[in-house]
Design a protein around this nucleic acid. Structure first.
Length: 530
RNA sequence: GGGCCUGUAGCUCAGUCAGGUAGAGCGUCGGGCUUUUAACCCGAUGGUCGCGGGUUCGAACCCCGUCGGGCCCGCCA
């Protein structure tokens, strides 16, 4: 069974109405690692609906969280905002400095990073109900849970200390008020008189906060179960950082009982890293943003990456050949006829499971509305994008006539972007030799050598366009009773340094005739001399 | 100090939850397509399932141990 269906089954055992929740702190640029969180939730929701359950999918924007530190992409002037909630500080401008103008227009730090992520979500067909955590506090959504938490501070302290096996400070209290400067750091609680906490901040200023009005926030380990409670979350996937024993899920599981609620069903997923570069990290700049990824890869393939990988499997995102293989696997899977495969006799249980899983992974990958596309592979399109500058020629080449589906136009656009990007693998790049490549020349055999002089003559006199070039090559080969395939081999070795390659006449017409003849002669000479 | 994930073909991985003669894709090699879209089709190649014990008629799978890789918690994420 596909992993999403396994979770759906667990959900159905518990009830028919569910809220699947995900959440991310907008502390910096979103990256594809975050996509796993949201796609995992999205796919579970879809699988659960598929199982006949009533499911709502929500995405909590943790905009009430404070700025932890001055990240590398921020100007030092942000140090004044450390400890301030992300919804209440200005967005960075191009230079990483606080952009007070946009802030005045109502764009917060949190909004700044959330907006592009929302666009990416649209593209990959994820449409959650967004919940802004800061606004939720402000509008009193946490009023009840905050009061319960403060009234049960001792119990919560006991849970956290026992489950996470760590000691909390003497003056620890389950509420972080906002101090006179707007920070929730370095503040000490001096009293609790439901629903008011009194505090003294690091500057010695004293004040009070009403926990029912969001004048502050619950600490993370309580904030999370409080969200479960007021939203009614029944299922939440989360990264392995929260899943560790004694981690926030373990403590949350017990704390949520104080709010008279059951902990949601959990699913811990592994991180996504960049191939050869380690974990994705917003602060080190070692990231690929969802929008950048989407400028290269069709959305259904990003979905397929998540859908076809079990959550507990770490993913190494590879923007080079790995991407090609993934995309081609997607194409092949799309072309499969699962009903015929399932009807085959003598299938082992494992084979059936594999077929089922592939089918489900594919279904979860399609974005709606699902358009029929040509089954051109990624490799093939990569080649076409390099050899045909006009889109029209690409469509003709793969037999698409009439109205081209938007998804195909997008795919070609992305391919052209990818070809020009630093991510495009050398292996697929079409390179034309300028000088004879000695290694390739060494591979020319006697037949090739016998052919070359005649071929050069024939190419010298032919019109430099596709059919004459093609004709010239095949007729020369026939003259010598050689297979055209073998004749092409000689040309590939001389021109591209490889034994095989993409359709050559097309490429030749885009190159200078004299230069090619010169190259072929040089190769001939080099071989004869060796 | 505690915990999680992971180790299977040259590469990427499935198979481990419900033990029953090792799988897929890519790659490689060979053939076909009598002018090759790196296509497509057919075939072949390829693994003492990290290692050592145990349970079992039977273990990649369960149990114990061990080695290697990745990571998390131990800072009010």
């Amino acid at each position: 069974m596909h992993w999403s269906d396994v979770v759906a089954q667990r959900l159905s055992e518990r009830g028919s109405k569910h809220i699947v929740s995900t959440g991310i702190t907008p502390s910096g640029e979103f990256h594809i690692g975050h996509l796993r969180e949201i796609l995992t939730g999205d796919m579970i929701s879809k699988a659960a609906r598929n199982a006949g359950l009533d499911v709502e999918f929500v995405f909590i924007v943790d905009s009430a969280d404070p700025l932890r530190k001055v990240y590398s992409f921020l100007d030092d002037s942000y140090s004044q905002y450390i400890g301030h909630q992300l919804k209440r500080i200005p967005p960075p401008n191009e230079e990483g400095c606080p952009d007070m103008e946009r802030f005045a227009e109502g764009v917060s730090y949190a909004d700044h990073f959330l907006e592009p992520f929302k666009q990416a979500l649209e593209q990959i067909d994820v449409r959650p109900r967004f919940i802004d955590n800061f606004d939720s506090y402000a509008s009193g959504k946490f009023a009840e849970t905050a009061r319960i938490a403060c009234n049960n501070a001792d119990k919560i302290r006991e849970i956290i200390e026992r489950v996470s096996n760590r000691e909390l400070a003497e003056d620890w209290f389950p509420w972080n008020p906002i101090d006179s400067n707007g920070s929730i750091d370095g503040i000490r609680i001096t009293g609790w008189n439901d629903p008011i906490v009194s505090w003294i901040d690091s500057d010695g200023n004293e004040g009070t906060s009403d926990v029912t009005k969001g004048e502050g926030k619950l600490p993370w380990r309580i904030d999370w179960p409080a969200k479960w409670a007021w939203i009614g979350v029944t299922m939440e996937p989360f990264g392995k950082d929260h899943g560790a024993a004694g981690g926030s899920y373990d403590t949350g599981k017990e704390i949520v009982e104080l709010f008279s609620q059951e902990a949601p069903i959990d699913l811990t997923y592994e991180w996504i890293s960049l191939r050869g570069q380690g974990a994705m990290s917003s602060s080190s700049g070692n990231t690929i943003g969802p929008l950048e990824a989407l400028s290269l890869v069709p959305p259904e393939i990003l979905r397929y990456l998540i859908a076809s990988t079990k959550p507990n499997k770490a993913i190494e995102f590879d923007t080079g050949m790995g991407l090609v293989n993934l995309a081609d696997e997607f194409e092949r899977t799309t072309a499969r006829d699962f009903s015929i495969e399932m009807d085959k006799e003598g299938l082992s249980r494992r084979q059936m499971v594999a077929i089922e899983d592939a089918k489900r992974a594919l279904e979860l990958s399609f974005i709606s509305p699902h358009e029929e596309t040509s089954s051109v592979t990624f490799r093939h399109l990569a080649m076409l994008a390099q050899t045909k500058s006009r889109d029209e020629d690409v469509w003709n080449s793969i037999g698409m006539i009439g109205t081209i589906p938007q998804s195909m136009i997008d795919r070609l656009d992305r391919m052209r972007t990818w070809v020009q990007s630093r991510h495009f693998p050398e292996e697929l790049r079409i390179t034309i030799m300028e000088e004879p490549d000695s290694e390739a020349i060494a591979l020319l055999d006697d037949d090739n050598m016998a052919l070359l002089p005649k071929l050069i003559e024939s190419l010298r006199s032919c019109d430099w366009e596709i059919s004459s070039i093609q004709n010239s090559i095949s007729s020369t080969a026939k003259e010598l009773e050689m297979s055209p395939r073998h004749a092409y081999r000689a040309l590939y070795l001389c021109i591209m340094g490889t034994e095989r390659g993409p359709r050559l006449p097309t490429i030749l017409t885009e190159l200078d005739q004299d230069a090619i003849l010169k190259l072929l002669n040089a190769c001939l000479q080099a071989k004869q001399e060796s």
